[in-house]
Design a protein around this nucleic acid. Structure first.
Length: 283
DNA sequence: ATGGGGGCCTGCCGGC
DNA sequence: TGCCGGCAGGCCCCCA
């Protein structure tokens, strides 16, 4: 579910209650999510201090004082709930355990972090920090879309000759890491590029439009998450979901937001995923 | 090599 | 009201 902006929002929400703090206890309530948890995960987490909380693509990486790094992926339905002590906030009691609370971390600052994931497409793993880059889930990832490695030259190179639709190419995490179904749709709309256009057939002008538009869409969503983060923290501590207004995603049949366009947003299916777009504005 | 489809899970929503 | 099919923001794996 969460794409890069949501994961970054979760990371920022966890940072004040995890970074520099020690895990005093770890409860692991089932043997696996998408894959088995690493052996002895609870014991390997207990007593460790979180020295850094990073993000790579849609993964959160918690570096530990033990020399290991905890990898967290939220999958489609993973959520992080923060309860108990939070800096600058009133302390409150922990809520009653919920269905699908799979991993619970208690920090020495008093915060409790609960990983809840109904569909269990999420994942957790532990690895030596120095080998995090070559973890199987991270090794093949393309550049961060907000980083310098994601340029017009790079993208032209990667899309050249590709016969797959640009929509599918942008979902390919080996090409660019962190985009998902929503933000690809939003970026293609803003760049006025049809999701059906073949990736190898974009041309330099469209590629040049796409780069800043992707950055804008993600940056705006992160900002929106940052503001809603405060609300969530006041409300129930739930991280990872925030309401954001989309221009085409999930707006099938509604009018295109472009002034005077008048066309209706259309939904098609590409590689098994739904795509929403304006057939008039996007070419 | 590359692209497309299946599968993993549970929850929710709309239609009958 | 209840049941059922379809769908969901991800990603690995297999097959052609």
């Amino acid at each position: 579910m969460p794409e890069l902006p949501e994961v970054e929002t979760v990371r920022r929400g966890l940072s004040p209650v995890m970074q520099g703090q020690r895990i005093v206890s770890a409860a692991v309530n089932r043997p696996n999510l998408r894959w088995p948890f690493p052996s002895g995960m609870a014991a390997r987490l207990t007593g460790a201090t979180v020295t850094a909380l990073r993000r790579r693509s849609k993964y959160i990486l918690a570096d530990l004082s033990t020399g290991e790094t905890l990898l967290i992926h939220l999958g489609m339905s993973g959520r992080m709930l923060v309860s108990g002590a939070m800096p600058g906030r009133f302390h409150h009691d922990h809520p009653a355990p919920q269905k699908h609370d799979h991993v619970v971390l208690d920090m020495d600052g008093g915060a409790r972090i609960t990983f809840n994931d109904a569909r269990r497409f999420g994942a957790m793993d532990l690895m030596p920090t120095e080998t995090a880059d070559i973890h199987p889930l991270l090794a093949g990832l393309g550049p961060e879309p907000l980083g310098n490695g994601f340029s017009g030259d790079y993208l032209s190179d990667r899309l050249a000759g590709k016969l797959t639709p640009i929509k599918s190419a942008l979902l390919d995490q080996r090409i660019v890491a962190g985009l998902g179904n929503i933000y690809v749709a939003e970026a293609l709309f803003r760049a006025a590029i049809s999701p059906r256009r073949l990736a190898g057939n974009l041309g330099s002008a469209r590629i040049a439009r796409l780069i800043p538009v992707i950055r804008d869409v993600l940056s705006e969503a992160i900002e929106a998450g940052g503001s809603s983060l405060r609300d969530y923290r006041q409300a129930d501590g739930e991280l990872g979901y925030f309401q954001h207004t989309f221009r085409v995603y999930d707006r099938e049949g509604q009018p295109c937001p472009t002034p005077d366009c008048g066309a209706a947003i259309v939904r098609i299916v590409q590689s098994g995923r739904s795509t929403c777009y304006c057939p008039r504005c996007q070419r």
